[in-house]
């Protein structure tokens, strides 16, 4: 069963990769990177059970957090073209 899950995750990864390479807009690519991060988390979680070492789950949890913060930073960059921008100041002007 874990093998079937693993193959499913690999196929989804390939699809996300296609979307990241083909584009066409920036948001497609951002979404595909975010989705690829999620697939990484799933992959590590399934890998832990496949090889009888579920202690990999800690690693998967850390990846979720990194992926979330990374996506926020990317979206902020796309919106304001500056990582140090203050959103409220932008709204006022």
């Amino acid at each position: 069963m874990f093998i079937a899950a693993m193959i499913g995750i690999l196929v989804t990864m390939a699809l996300a990769l296609c979307r990241a390479l083909l584009g066409p807009t920036v948001y497609d690519r951002i979404l595909s990177v975010n989705m690829f991060g999620t697939k990484t988390v799933l992959f590590i979680a399934v890998l832990g059970f496949l090889t009888d070492r579920p202690d990999f789950l800690d690693l998967a949890l850390i990846y979720v957090l990194i992926n979330f913060i990374g996506t926020l930073a990317v979206l902020k960059f796309v919106t304001y073209n500056d990582l140090g921008a203050d959103p409220e100041e932008q709204n006022r002007t």
């Binding site: 990241a20 920036v26 690829f36 890998l47 990374g70």
Partner: peptide, 21 residues
Amino acid sequence: LFMAAMMTGIFSFLSAIVFTL
């Protein structure tokens, strides 16, 4: 270059999986 930066993010995820393997 923005797209390339995004792609390197995916590349790091893949290499992290390979290291886990």
